[in-house]
């Protein structure tokens, strides 16, 4: 795969990228991890200054199609980890493989970057053009996508983020939430196989946040692999898997309903627990026999059942 992307003309690479999901699954070499592994950190270590390691001996795999949420306090290594997934950073020790390619292999960088789309926190930092369609087209155009297809991709990407028909709108007149959706559309137009969101909802208001999360969930339902970094537990509760980092180590890893109810451990890691969990714990302390849970509706149901049984 690396070989092909090295010598092929750009347009051909893109055509491959469009089918990246299948191509990758088929092309993973035998000695690598299981064929459906998209991201594989193996004993990875990284340091910015040669002294302090952001992470060390990090092992983490993300299978194709998973919706993974990465949690951790400020400085726990989340963003550094995210930048390893599209080879913006490469490990100093150990290895990171993305789509079966070693990220340190310079010949794979182009392939990895065009298939692993990264969305950052600040929407204003990520808008490059004054018209929405130009902004969304920026990535694929740079990849050499020819025009009829380019236009299709822009239209499709905007539809995927709920901004169909906004092609001719000016980017500076958009709200933060809309800008962030344009930023995601710009990434989607490159036809990535994995979407990485690094606190992409942090600067949005509740309405913008809910809209963005809905888009991410729809993309995941359609087969996209998603790695989402967030501080909002209510967002984490909607993922398939939650991984908590502390000091560059994976300290908790599991389904949200198992991880997010571990109040004491999460608080010790400078994280919160979702409201429903906090309330269910307070209720248990007050003698109400409810199970710790992470969804308001579940707790309400349980309480109503208790009430009608008394």
């Amino acid at each position: 795969m690396t070989q092909r992307s090295e010598n092929a003309p750009e347009a051909a690479v893109i055509a491959e990228a469009a089918e990246a999901t299948e191509v990758v699954a088929a092309a993973v070499p035998g000695e690598a991890a299981a064929p459906d592994t998209f991201v594989d950190f193996r004993d990875a270590a990284f340091t910015y200054d040669g002294e302090r390691f952001v992470f060390r001996d990090l092992n983490l795999t993300v299978p194709q199609g998973q919706f993974l949420c990465l949690l951790g306090g400020n400085g726990s290594g989340k963003s550094t980890l995210a930048k390893h997934i599209n080879a913006l950073l490469v490990p100093d020790e150990g290895a990171v493989e993305v789509f079966g390619c070693d990220t340190r292999d310079a010949e794979s960088t182009y392939f990895i970057r065009s298939n692993a789309g990264l969305v950052f926190q600040n929407p204003d930092d990520q808008i490059v053009a004054s018209l929405i369609e130009n902004d969304v087209a920026f990535g694929p155009e740079n990849l050499g996508v020819p025009n009829p297809e380019l236009r299709e991709r822009v239209t499709r990407a905007l539809a995927e983020v709920g901004l169909q028909g906004f092609e001719k709108h000016e980017t500076n007149a958009l709200s933060g939430g809309q800008k962030q959706r344009v930023a995601i559309a710009g990434v989607l137009a490159m036809d990535p196989a994995i979407l990485i969101l690094d606190e992409a909802t942090a600067m949005l208001d509740p309405r913008g946040r809910a809209g963005l999360l809905r888009v991410v969930r729809e993309l995941h339902a359609a087969g996209m692999t998603v790695v989402m970094i967030t501080h909002y537990m209510e967002e984490a509760a909607q993922a398939e898997r939650v991984v908590v980092l502390d000091g560059g180590r994976v300290v908790l890893d599991g389904a949200p309903e198992d991880v997010l109810v571990r109040a004491d451990e999460l608080r010790a890691l400078s994280l919160e627990v979702p409201f429903a969990c906090r309330l269910s714990l307070a209720l248990r302390a007050a003698g109400v026999p409810v199970a710790p849970c992470i969804a308001d509706d579940d707790l309400k149901e349980e309480l109503c059942a208790l009430r009608s049984s008394r």
Partner: peptide, 21 residues
């Protein structure tokens, strides 16, 4: 808030000494 809500729910369900806490 969380504390008062937990206490009043406990009281409404007649659990423990919720109201007193």
């Amino acid at each position: 808030d969380e504390a008062t809500l937990a206490a009043d729910i406990a009281a409404a369900l007649g659990c423990g000494d919720g109201a007193a806490s």
